[in-house]
Amino acid sequence: MRGGEDQPLAGSVMHVKNYVRFEFQSLPENISFARSCVAAFASQIDCTLDDIEEIKLVVSEAVSNSIIHGYGNKPSGKIVITVSILDKKTLEIIVEDYGKGIENLEEALKPTYSSDPSRMGLGFTFMKSFMDEMEVTSNPGEGTSVRLKRSFLAKDKEAYA
């Protein structure tokens, strides 16, 4: 994780410039919709096409996790996504489900950990790698929330340095 874990929640200290919130059923058909929506909203931030592709990837991973692990592929679950633009250049994505939650969060966050041997266990690795901050909160029986944050200005400066 590149961001400091001891920093306060971004939303509580930074001004939200704009946000969208939407919910949908836990169906694989909706993953593409979810990542396209977030990508379209994120394009308000001055970021590159590569950045947009990475945003699509992390949303896809978080939503797939909710469908597979949170709801055990049952289509009746609810997934809620909130995307916020903070201080013009920072994007915050929160993906929440009300599924079974993660029993052992520490184990689940280990690279290449997977509860299903046919999958690669790369979901959280991608989310951590492509975002500045990742925070997962989960309560068994209640659900899981993944908060992802990334600031885009710093990256541009690096790119043009």
């Binding site: 592709e53 690669m120 266990g121 790369l122 991608f126």
Partner: peptide, 13 residues
Amino acid sequence: TFIDSSGLGVLIG
């Protein structure tokens, strides 16, 4: 035009 860990999982499998 897009691949995520589910797609990678099928390839590796």
